[in-house]
Design a binder for these strands. Structure first.
Lengths: 198, 198, 198, 198
DNA sequence: CGATAAGCGAGACGGTACGTCAAGTCTTATA
DNA sequence: TATAAGACTTGACGTACCGTCTCGCTTATCG
């Protein structure tokens, strides 16, 4: 006796997640209301509350769905190109809606550790992992020194993107990457495509 | 004449700003309500709306008041110490209340450029200026190269603090500063206090 | 071939009717919900709607079942005893649950003549018929005059019981009957058991 | 500090009470919703809940307002005319809306003694008092015997009206009164206007 | 000094949204 | 075909705040 009762209509869940992204884009996190989402998804509050216990859970899932459609990070064989792709992706994410829904969401979940962890797992870690893997590949190829502080690089790249998104001036992706790598001078051996050297 | 009628009771404004900080600390930006602030300040909504046209303006002023009590940034004659002080201050600010009210506030003001600018002017620029001045002093003293990219350093330091605050793991101030400066290797000439060299 | 497929479980119908009486007794007609009845009968809403098209029909059947278990009205050979029995029965019915479910039910069926008629036929007429028959027997026995206005007597007795039930003070059955009959003085020839005369 | 704050707009209360009567007349007590009343009164639920704590209180006040506009019972110097007036009034009240809102209301207040008492005081007692006073006057004038059981007469008249209202056949007022008084034969000395005798 | 203007607390105003409950219907898998 | 289970749309529940307004009152400044 496991799967009894009328099954959920999967279209509703999808429509609600899409509607959530729409509403977020229009009014931002603080002004997103469940009623507005339900209206736009052409469904009702109870159907919505059946699936997500709170606004926070809803927004989390909506962002996760949105982001998973981004596809995998590039693997071009060139560290600058790979990282540039990651930054472009991150920047797009941060700007696809009133800036930094993620920060508002995290702030709003301050008292709910379970939820925070889910957010980190589903939204924050994947792009960080992509950056880290690009760095590992570059080290394997010998493009970067083996002792480069990858954790710091990952943090700095992510931080820069979020920080600038807050103030509406996105970093130019390639410039950000090369500047960062040049800034971490001793770890970088040079960019094979442009002939740039340290 | 200009100022007729009963003058405002200055105690009310102060009490409201303090109450705002309290409420922010307890429930965060998204759940802060004007009524709760008025209740806690033992006053009423109209008295509050007389002074601030919106929740956003109120929070802005509350944070500004809170931060101006921090006093000036240190000027110790040592760049690592100065920057460490700036980072400590920034970190404390970001953690003194449900993390990164600033990000929520900025996100909530996306559509109000005037307000955003005020926020930047009153909350964001001062600590950035402090960091920049510490760097200028270091350059003047010869501690740092004259061609150091100060704008990048300021961004990276601020970004790192905000980014880590979002995830509740504050950077160790001195480690963050020295790592950053070391990461920008060519610009740094060495730390006089610890004898550390590049 | 008429009855194909799985037959109805007759226990469910009974359990639902009993549950309906329970819920009526606890929260009254206005607050009776189908879900509560289904829960208490340990069945589900669809099973309930398969049997009764509406709350009104359900309550009607529940009351009818409850009342038919009362058994027939007494036939003692004495008009006062017979009518006292009728009044006792009626009073018990009116007080066995939050007072006068019948009135609420009738009020709620104002717009459904078919249903009203069913209610009258199944719930209202039987006890009136019993009163009428007791009067007929008394006339046959010569206890009451042949020209007594039986319709009026039936109305007055029923009205009194319902009216007082509304206000929680049940009439003392025998007193009500004797007073009424004495009030209709000219029709009454005396009570053989007590020797009371007009 | 008694009357502070913005005073209530008295028009709202009146409009709501009128709207309540309208809605009652259209859908009956069981289907009356607060939202429908608010809509029809062109106001909002909170304004309504500010004035009445529950549907029951609201309906009580609406009926009371409705009935107090009926004006005083007649005093014609003739018991049949006086009582006929009372019965006409009562019948009109019982039929001015889906039958016997009063019974539904009382049933719905079974568990709230305070409210029941208010209903009795404001809705039930006044017309009973009018009947009783008409009887007293008749006794004073010598129209009725001094030892007539007035309490019984009051009950029977009220009961008859309510009972018949339940079944949609109102008693003909004068017929009901004369029949009742004739039924209580020994107490009645004759109707001066029609020459009717016992 | 008395008029006037603005402040004050209190609380009602018309609203919107909350999160819940129940209505009556529909869709499964199982019996 | 009936069952239990439970999802579906709809709509009302009673509450919390929104941002505004009207009060009765107090407190300053100005004419």
């Amino acid at each position: 006796m496991e799967r009894t009762g009328r099954p959920r209509n999967p279209k509703i869940g999808d429509a609600v997640l899409d509607a959530t992204i729409d509403v977020l884009s229009e009014v931002g996190y603080a002004r997103l209301t469940i009623e507005a989402v339900a209206r736009r998804a052409k469904t009702t509050k109870p159907s919505l509350y059946r699936r997500w216990p709170s606004r926070q859970h809803l927004v989390l899932d909506a962002l996760a769905k949105r982001f998973e459609s981004d596809g995998p990070a590039p693997d071009t064989g060139c560290v600058v190109c790979d990282l540039t792709g990651c930054v472009t992706l991150l920047t797009t994410r941060c700007q696809c809606m009133p800036p930094d829904v993620l920060a508002s969401l995290l702030a709003d979940c301050a008292e709910q550790p379970d939820l925070r962890e889910k957010i980190v797992t589903k939204l924050v870690e994947p792009p960080r992992r992509a950056v880290n893997e690009a760095l590992v590949r570059a080290q394997t190829r010998g493009e970067l020194r083996a002792d480069l502080d990858r954790a710091l690089a990952v943090d700095l790249l992510g931080a820069l993107v979020h920080y600038r998104a807050l103030f509406h001036h996105a970093p130019d992706p390639e410039a950000a990457v090369t500047t960062l790598l040049r800034g971490m001078a001793e770890n970088y051996k040079g960019h094979p495509h442009t002939g740039m050297t340290n």
